[in-house]
Structures are given as structure tokens and as C-alpha cells.
Design a protein around this nucleic acid. Structure first.
Length: 852
RNA sequence: GCCCCUGUGGCGGAACGGUAGACGCGGCAGACUCAAAAUCUGUUGCCCUCACGGGCGUGCUGGUUCAAGUCCGGCCAGGGGCACCA
């Protein structure tokens, strides 16, 4: 018997689907719509296993919904601007545009080999001028709608390369190429006013009930709504200083007031204090990354000023500048209460400031309550706090707020952690910002008729700083307002802007407007969005904001772009290393150079021992990357797709293993064999009569599989769907004598169920079963409810929670009968050893537990 | 440092608070074969026992419950994000 030839079959069916134009998507349709979208890839050059996993999952959903009768939109595009192209240009002297489009061509070929059910006519790349010109238009409309503004912001500055660094390019506080200590520097940049929607973005999370709870929680924490009190201290220099606190109840535990190094008052004081200037410079030697700032050693500088305690003007608190106070949160100034805030405590210990507990746990004696290294942040009663003594935390907050508000020096406010979105990038491979800076008129929008502002073709990446800024002609323009000489903005937009609205463009990528309102209103929101958990906050939040902005500017009628979200886990692989003479003593080697023999793991064809390390996310640096294309060559796209769906729950990380892929390939062959070796099958459509015995068991297996797989695919539980299909395949082999029509039903069922997952194999089998209509045009199977039900059930019998026996009973057998049967079992008699049971718990259809 | 997640056999994992280990990989034994590959059948958490049977088991630890992988408290380990990687 001929084996299944995956390569031949896959090419054949991909051609057949193409010829049939099976996956083109008409916008107008009477069918219900399903917009299935996977996060579009960055065109790095080759697809990796993470892409295979992501796009296979999306493809299964798209094909499944299509079979269920939905009008499916399943597009693909390229998130094509970004740093890697710029790095390639700088390092390899290549043109970023040529590099990017060549990568796109290579990756498109690879994706097509997977047999994805994608409408390729809708493909675009964000670096196409025909895409980014619309983005420039949206930017201008957002600007007119007061959703874009200009403001100063810090960047990582490399003082040697004279360039702005991405956080990724700052390694241990130094520039990745120059090795120079990175500084923070202020630049005037464009911001999106995402904070206008802080409350709205937070509240709407409740409605996203088909998003993972953890993603909603992460977004909620990111937005970081907190209610507190904003009030002012009177300073010894006569000024008033505003602070924000979520714990005004701890005001009597205050031991200092701290200013951000970026606070206006700090800058004012620095004018007369060279040492403070040095201190600020020292604080600025950390990059802009929050992790770097938060883990930096706490530094303080005493300004010499004091602040009067609001409830005791004679009580003077020192005013310090502290590196852990962020200008971007609250007012950029705080009062420090070391006993009840960990950072304040660390700071107070270092600078020998007083630590006075003012909240003690219920029942503890205030005189004896002392703190070691941990601040007390739990609930309790106020102490050492004069008129607050004895109150609980909430009452004390209210009391302090009321008293200070009555004096007109405080206001209860809501504060958000969310900051406005800094969108300017000092990069050359990005969407140009359509603004012109005129000495007389200020920042002036480019007229819409001048769009797109295209990137020049002749950027020189050998210059220091931004090649776009260094370009001889790009930046020179006439002011649209006064006509005088002016300069273009030479920054580009954050690539997150590109991905904040691409899903709307897919609804009609041909329209002359940014989006086609009719198409967008039909297709959006995306019914199933699938992508990596690493995008749980930024990309998704920006897309949610942008959709609201497009609503405000009249392009859409919706606010939430993604009705259902699924976040997939990463693909990992073992790491391999061999000993060498280097400082680290070993270096990584690639899986293709490794072989496992009976007595260990070795470099291929040698006796050099290889150390097998833990399984980690596939990365170039660890050399544990397995290229999907080689695997598709060996086993076929279907086997690789099947492997990606098997075993691991899709939201969890998974390990690539070649033995696993081999197992999948054997299953491909097994299904093929089951179908082509089937004998005595009636013609398609044969009726099934009354059946019993083995035939009934096989029918039940088929119908149970349909019910289970339908439910599992609907919930993206691909690994469980795979297990159900194995069970059905096992049942078909276990009942070889079943009636021919029943056997045909079971075989057709298994073929239809694997259709979304292994579409090429399924088409071949479908044809072998005598069908002339393509499987992609065949509806999803339905099941007969009665055939999925069992008539008896095995019930475990426990004594004191330990399983001692089991009974078989009719479904829904009455409690009394189950109790009697359970007490009569050998296992129970042995365990009771003549003692009388104290209590018997009966859970019908599940369990009997006897308490002795 | 802060936020979020994960932890179950040799391995990937399954399990509405109700028989822990479905399904797969791997292993072992057998069938077929001159032989191998492929395929098929059986078996496979650990420990004691010829067996019947029993004990132990879901990162550690304490609790709630007739019953805990699942719920609650405290730890430990690994991973993701932290606003200029995408």
C-alpha cells in the first residue's frame, strides 16, 4: 500500500484551494461574520516555531468557523517598521527597505507552505506608503481632536554615538555599541493623550469577558487607578509644595518630604547649589527604564529646606531630593512615612531618619509594636497620631482629608499610573511624523494633500544620530501656514502606532480612506485575536486607545477592537553546549549538530559529549532554534501543525521535540491507512439502520467525538480536541467488524474533525472516501445527542476519603440504592472491619463517601 | 524593586471541590519478518507483596471540608511585562 506523500498532497491541495479561491472574503454577506486574526509578524527573515504555533491556532479557528457556516475574514500582513532593519542597515550596509521586503517575500513563501486559509489579496506591510499615509492622516486628525500634543520627555542618550537608545540597547546602564554610560536627556516630543481615556479604558475591561482574566488584571494594574489626597506643605522658603498620597492616614508617621530630581523646585534649588546639580546628574545616570530606576540604590540629597507638618506648624520635616520619586506620577513629590511604605523605610534606614509606627495590627500594643526590615502595610488601628488614635485606616484617611480640605489646602483626587503615550522616535525606519516646525508659526500640520510624507530612498546609515535628520533634503520644507522656510519633524512614530489600527485596515485594505466605514462596521470587532502574552499590556492597550480615537474622529462606531483574546505560550527547546577553552568554559551548539545515541548526547558524528541544558524560549543567543521549514520538509506541514496543537495547552509554553514530530507523522500515516484500507464501505450518504453491540459502540464514539471536538475547538482547547480524535481513531481500530455504513460514518467523522487541523491530509482522505466536493466546502458535522449518552456509570466508593472500591450503577440511580450498594462492597467491609459507619455522603453519578 | 502567570509519572500533559495520571511521547514484553524498518497487541506513577491486598504520591508548609491538584494563608523555584525589542 502506498504511504501518504505529504509533500505531493500539500502542494496539490494548496493549488486546488487557490484555483477555487476558497479563502477570498466577500465583505457583504448574509452569513454571520467571524473575524479571526493573529498578531501580524515582524518580518525578521524566517518564520520561527512561535509563528507556526500562532498561525496554526488561528488557522484552525478560521477553518472551523468557515465549516460552521460563518463568513470568515482571516488576513495576513507585516509589522514592517522597526529597529532590526535599521541595525541591518548600519551593520551590513543594506537598504532597510530592500532588506524588509526581501524578508517579507521569504516569510510569505514559508507561511504559504503551512497551508493557511488566508485571504492573501488583503496583505499589506506597515512600511508601504499606501499604509502609512493613512496613519499620517489619522495622526493629524488626532492632533486636531486634541489627542496629540507636544511635550518634553526623557530619552536614553548615548554621549559617544550621539544617538538615542532603545531600552533594549542599554545594557547595565551602558550603550550597547559604544559602551558609554547612558544619560537621560530631555527632548521635545509628540504624545498621544491616552490618559483622557484612563477611566474609560479601565471600566471597559469589565465588558471584555472573553479576555483572559490575567490580561485584564495586568491592564487594570497598569492603568493603576488610586484614590488619594493631594495637599500642600508650607516650606521654610515660603513656598507651598503639593504632594499626593494614598495614605494620608499615616501623616503623623511622616519623617521627611521628598522631591523628584526632575521636580521644578529641584531645578530651581539647583540654580544656587552646584552639589545638587551633581546629584541630579548622578540620578540621571540611570536609563529611562522603570526596572532600572526601581532597582537602583536609593539616593537622597538634603536640600536644607524644611516643611511644616500640616497639623503641627512647629514640627519641621527635612526636604530631600530622592531618586525613587518619579516626576511622572502624582505631583512628583511625596511625604515619606517609613513605617508603612517599604521604599520609604529603606530610604529612612539609609539616611538615619525616624521610623514611627502609626498603624498597628488589631490587638497589638502600640508601645511594643516595632518594625524590623519590613514596613507594615496591613490593616489596623491608628496610634501615636493624636486625634486619629484608635481609628481604623479608612476612617483616618477620611478624617485627615476632611480637616485639610476644610482649611483649603487639600483635595481628594483620583490618580492614575498610566502616562500619556510618547510616540516620537528618533529612528529612520518608521512612519514619518507629518508636522513642520516653523520659527514663527510653531508646529504646523502638513496639509492632507501633501500626504504621504515618504521616507527618502537614500538614507545614509553611517552617520551618527538619526539618518533621517542627517538627510540633505528631507527636513527642509516651507511652512504650510506662512510659507517661510521651516523644518520637518525628523522623528518617526513608535511602531506600536502601526499595530494600533492595522486590524481595521484589513476590513478593506483597498479603500482610499484610512478605513472603509461600512466594512469596518461590518467586520469589527475582531472575533478572535490570538498572540503572545508578551503583548498583554502595551500593544493591546494602545489598540484599545486608538480604536477610541478613531471613534472620536468618526472612523468607527466601536470602542473595543478585540471581542475575544487568546494569549499563547512560547515555544521552547533544550539547550546544548560543549566544553571549550573559553572563559565561560562552554559554548552553545545547535540542535541540528547534536545526536542522541544510546549512551548519551554527542556532537553529530563524533564522540564529543554534549551537555543538555534546560528547555528555554527559542533564541539565537542560546542557539536552541529549530527552523520550521526543515521540519516541514521532513514530516509535512500537517504533522507539524498537529504537533503544535497536541499535548500542551495553547496558553502554556511548549517544548519542541523531534520525537514528538515523528509521532505526529506516524499518526498522519495511521489516519491515511485507516481510510484507504477500509473495505466494504457503502457509497457516501448510505443510511444507518438500528445498530447494537460493536457497531453501536463505534457510533457512540463518533458522536461523542463530534460533541467534544466541537466544544474544545470553540474554546481553543486544541490539545483536548487532539486527544478526542486519538480516542476516536483508537475506537475505529478496536471495532473492525462494525457495519459498513457505521464504519463510513466513523471514518468521515474523523476526517471532518481533523479538517481544520490537518487540512491537506483531510482533503486527501475525503477524496479517497469517494467525495467530489472539497472538504473545505463541506459543513462541520453535527451529532445525535442520544448517542453521546452512557446508560451506566462507575461510581467510586470511599471510606474516610480513601478509595476502597467501586460500583457500577444506572445513570441517575437513587441515593438510597447507591448507599446500599456501596456498603455491600468487599472493599468497604474490609475497611470498616465491623465498625458502623457514622455518616454516608452520596453524590449521585459521582461518588459515595463513608465516614467511619 | 513592582505587576502577572506557572509548578502533577521518565517526558508533554488530563482531571464541574468528588476514582489523580485521559490522550500522546518514551520504555518493557509479545505477534508479524530470514532479519530489520514499518505495523499490530499487551503493559507501564513509586514502594511492600508470589498473590490477595496495602502504603505513599500533584513544588514546600499550615488551614477549611465528609472529600483538596483544585479553595484560603505563608514560603520556594521558574517564566512574562515594566512604557524606545516587537
Amino acid at each position: 500500500m502506498a504511504r501518504y506523500n505529504a509533500k505531493e498532497s500539500e502542494q496539490r491541495w494548496q493549488a486546488a484551494w487557490n484555483a477555487r479561491q476558497a479563502f477570498l472574503t466577500p465583505t457583504d454577506s448574509t452569513k454571520p461574520k467571524a473575524y479571526v486574526l493573529e498578531m501580524f509578524p515582524y518580518p525578521s527573515g524566517r518564520i520561527h516555531m512561535g509563528h507556526v504555533r500562532n498561525y496554526t491556532m488561528g488557522d484552525v479557528i478560521a477553518r472551523f468557523r468557515r465549516a460552521q457556516g460563518f463568513n470568515v475574514l482571516h488576513p495576513m500582513g507585516w509589522d514592517a517598521f522597526g529597529l532590526p532593519a535599521e541595525n541591518a542597515a548600519r551593520d551590513g550596509g543594506v537598504d532597510p527597505r530592500a532588506w524588509t521586503y526581501a524578508n517579507i517575500d521569504a516569510m510569505r513563501t514559508e507561511l504559504k507552505a503551512l497551508g493557511l486559509a488566508i485571504d492573501w489579496t488583503r496583505e499589506f506591510a506597515t512600511c508601504d506608503p499606501d499604509y502609512y499615509k493613512h496613519q499620517q492622516k489619522l495622526f493629524l486628525e488626532f492632533y486636531n481632536g486634541d489627542l496629540v500634543y507636544r511635550h518634553e520627555a526623557d530619552v536614553n542618550w548615548d554621549p559617544v554615538d550621539l544617538t538615542v537608545l532603545a531600552n533594549e540597547q542599554v545594557i547595565d546602564g551602558r550603550g550597547w555599541r559604544s559602551g558609554a554610560l547612558v544619560e537621560r536627556r530631555k527632548l521635545s516630543q509628540w504624545f498621544f493623550r491616552i490618559t483622557r481615556y484612563s477611566e474609560e479604558l479601565l471600566r471597559a475591561l469589565d465588558g471584555l469577558d472573553r479576555w483572559p482574566d490575567k490580561v485584564r488584571l495586568m491592564q487594570k494594574n497598569w492603568i493603576g487607578r488610586s484614590e488619594g489626597l493631594r495637599f500642600s506643605f508650607q516650606l521654610s522658603n515660603g513656598e507651598a509644595l503639593d504632594v499626593f498620597s494614598t495614605r494620608p492616614d499615616t501623616l503623623f508617621g511622616a519623617s521627611f518630604v521628598a522631591l523628584s530630581p526632575d521636580h521644578p523646585l529641584t531645578e530651581e534649588l539647583a540654580g544656587a547649589d552646584p552639589k545638587l546639580v551633581d546629584f541630579i546628574a548622578q540620578c540621571r545616570r540611570t536609563g529611562t527604564a522603570e526596572a532600572a530606576i526601581e532597582t537602583a540604590e536609593k539616593l537622597g540629597y538634603d536640600t536644607g529646606l524644611t516643611a511644616a507638618h500640616p497639623f503641627d506648624p512647629g514640627w519641621k520635616l527635612p526636604v530631600l531630593v530622592a531618586n525613587f520619586v518619579l516626576m511622572g506620577y502624582g505631583t512628583g513629590a511625596i511625604f515619606g512615612c517609613p513605617a508603612h511604605d517599604q521604599r520609604d523605610l529603606d530610604f529612612a534606614r539609609k539616611y538615619k531618619l525616624p521610623v514611627l509606627p502609626v498603624v498597628v495590627p488589631e490587638g497589638a500594643d502600640p508601645k511594643e509594636f516595632a518594625l524590623a526590615d519590613a514596613a507594615y502595610v496591613g490593616p489596623g488601628r491608628l496610634a501615636n497620631s493624636r486625634f486619629l488614635d484608635g481609628m481604623d485606616v479608612e476612617s483616618a484617611k477620611t478624617e485627615v482629608a476632611a480637616r485639610l480640605e476644610a482649611r483649603g489646602i487639600a483635595k481628594r483626587t483620583v490618580n492614575y499610573r498610566l502616562r500619556d503615550w510618547l510616540a516620537s522616535r528618533q529612528r529612520a525606519w518608521g512612519c514619518p511624523i507629518p508636522m513642520i516646525h516653523c520659527a514663527t508659526c510653531g508646529a504646523v500640520p502638513v496639509p492632507e494633500s501633501d500626504l504621504p510624507i515618504k521616507l527618502p530612498d537614500d538614507l545614509d546609515f553611517s552617520v551618527k544620530g538619526s539618518p533621517l535628520d542627517a538627510h540633505p533634503t528631507f527636513k527642509h520644507a516651507n511652512c504650510p501656514a506662512c510659507g517661510g522656510n521651516a523644518l520637518r519633524d525628523t522623528d518617526t512614530l513608535d511602531t506600536f502606532v502601526d499595530s494600533a489600527w492595522y486590524f481595521a485596515r484589513f476590513a478593506d485594505p483597498f479603500t482610499a480612506d484610512p478605513v472603509n466605514r461600512e466594512a469596518v462596521n461590518y467586520w469589527l470587532p475582531v472575533d478572535q485575536y490570538i498572540g503572545g502574552i508578551e503583548h498583554a499590556i502595551l500593544h493591546l492597550l494602545y489598540a484599545r486607545f486608538f480604536t477610541r480615537g478613531m471613534h472620536a474622529t468618526g472612523w468607527t462606531r466601536i470602542d473595543e477592537p478585540f471581542a475575544s483574546l487568546f494569549t499563547q505560550g512560547m515555544v521552547c527547546h533544550e539547550t546544548y553546549s560543549v566544553a571549550d577553552d573559553s572563559a565561560t568554559g562552554s559554548h552553545y551548539v545547535e540542535p541540528v549538530d547534536v545526536e542522541k545515541r544510546g549512551d548519551g548526547t554527542f556532537l553529530k558524528g563524533t564522540d564529543v559529549a554534549v551537555t543538555v541544558g534546560p528547555s528555554e524560549k527559542m533564541s539565537k543567543s542560546k542557539k536552541n532554534v529549530v527552523a520550521p521549514m526543515g521540519m516541514i520538509d521532513s514530516y509535512g506541514a500537517d504533522a507539524i501543525r498537529w504537533f503544535m496543537l497536541s499535548d500542551s495547552p495553547p496558553e502554556r509554553d511548549t517544548d519542541w521535540s523531534e520525537t514528538g514530530a515523528e509521532g505526529c507523522w506516524r499518526f498522519v500515516q495511521r489516519i491515511h491507512r485507516l481510510v484507504v484500507e477500509a473495505e466494504g464501505l457503502p457509497l457516501p450518504g448510505a443510511a444507518i439502520g438500528e445498530v447494537s453491540g460493536a457497531a453501536l459502540a463505534l457510533r457512540q464514539a463518533a458522536h461523542r467525538a463530534i460533541a467534544a471536538v466541537t466544544e474544545d475547538l470553540g474554546n481553543l482547547r486544541f490539545n483536548r480536541a487532539v486527544a478526542q480524535i486519538y480516542t476516536l481513531a483508537n475506537a475505529i481500530q478496536a471495532h473492525p467488524a462494525a457495519d459498513g455504513a457505521v464504519r463510513r460514518e466513523a471514518l468521515e467523522t474523523v476526517v471532518k474533525l481533523i479538517g481544520p487541523m490537518m487540512p491537506h491530509l483531510a482533503e486527501s482522505c475525503w477524496e479517497a472516501l469517494g467525495h467530489t466536493v472539497l472538504l473545505v466546502d463541506t459543513p462541520w458535522p453535527s451529532f445525535i445527542e442520544a448517542l453521546t449518552k452512557a446508560d451506566s456509570v462507575t461510581i467510586a466508593v470511599q471510606v474516610n476519603g480513601k478509595r476502597r472500591d467501586e460500583i457500577i450503577a444506572a445513570v441517575n440511580a437513587p441515593e438510597a440504592q447507591l448507599r446500599e450498594a456501596a456498603l455491600a462492597t468487599d472493599g468497604v467491609r474490609r475497611a470498616l472491619d465491623g465498625k458502623a459507619p457514622k455518616k454516608v455522603i452520596v453524590v449521585p453519578n459521582r461518588i459515595v463517601n463513608i465516614v467511619a
